[in-house]
């Protein structure tokens, strides 16, 4: 197993990935050399034009899908397969509908082979952390979308992962719930001291949450820019209306707009070739 020592929690070096599109059997280059260093306990958000492969990158980092070339190190160890050192928070909460809140939260521990009773006791702490005390025996269909995402988060946190990979976890929530979840996530992040990689298509969400916002280009995807967000913490929700915040929004929006236009152009071109 390859190793690399440095102060970084996660290192990505020259990552490339292509896949064959079934529709027309064309090889689509997704990543064209991505390199990124993430520090311990850092909150990094990934944004970019849709279809640029943000979610794909998250899946690669988790080991769910393979990559073509390059290197990924988590704590100096090469990432090859999924496991409980990475906590994945899914976009659609993906809770198992036949399990109660508690039993959904302990899924990762169970897969590791932990004793169910011990796991359930441990679950309480995380259910409390995400603010679902009193809902332990409820089933997912009895919960609102926001509450389901809290369970999703607790399920990822309980395995005490080295890194938290979050895939647009608030995308399907209504605007108010989303804002509340954002601010609560930051509180939990301070408590749990986890390294977080957070994918979103919402620029203001990225700025509000992140230490650094990584802006992707259109496909074949590269890192277009990394914007350091110098807004002091703790961040109240009202920070979203400050001038600094809006300046960041403009800055990132401009880059993405450019990339979106590029990707639209390319799409037209690709479709033209197909016909």
């Amino acid at each position: 197993m390859a190793t690399e020592s440095s102060g970084s929690k996660l290192i990505v070096r020259n990552l490339t990935k292509a896949f064959r599109r079934q529709r027309d059997n064309r090889v689509i280059k997704v990543f064209d050399g991505i390199s990124l260093d993430v520090h311990p306990s850092e909150f990094v958000c990934l944004v970019g034009p849709s279809g640029c492969g943000k979610t794909t990158l998250l899946r690669i980092l988790n080991g769910l899908i393979p990559y073509d070339s390059g290197e990924i190190f988590l704590d100096g160890n090469s990432v090859i397969k999924p496991g409980v050192d990475k906590g994945f928070v899914f976009q659609d909460s993906s809770l198992l509908p036949w399990r109660t809140v508690t039993d959904n939260v302990i899924l990762g521990l169970e897969i590791q082979g932990a004793d169910k009773k011990v796991a359930r006791e441990r679950a309480q702490k995380f259910i409390d952390l995400v603010g679902l005390k009193g809902f332990e025996t409820h089933y997912p269909y009895e919960l609102s979308g926001g509450m389901q995402q809290r369970v999703n988060l607790a399920r990822a946190l309980i395995v005490d992962p080295e890194i938290l990979l979050m895939d647009e976890p608030f995308a399907s929530l209504d605007a108010q719930t989303r804002e509340i979840m954002q601010s609560e996530l930051l509180k939990m992040w301070v408590q749990a001291k986890k390294t977080v990689i957070f994918v979103t298509h919402q620029i203001e969400e990225a700025i509000y949450l992140a230490d650094r916002v990584v802006v992707f280009s259109a496909r074949p995807t590269k890192i277009r820019e990394i914007v350091k967000i110098q807004i002091s913490r703790p961040r109240p929700l009202s920070v979203k209306r400050t001038k600094d915040f809006l300046d960041y929004t403009d800055q990132i929006w401009e880059i993405i707009q450019e990339e979106v236009l590029k990707s639209m152009g390319r799409e037209v071109e690709e479709r033209g070739v197909v016909r």
């Binding site: 994945f88 899914f90 659609d92 198992l96 897969i111 590791q112």
Partner: peptide
């Protein structure tokens, strides 16, 4: 599929 992926993501 998404439920299968949850178990796989934990190394199941």
């Amino acid at each position: 599929e998404n439920l299968i992926e949850v178990v796989e993501a934990f190394g199941g």
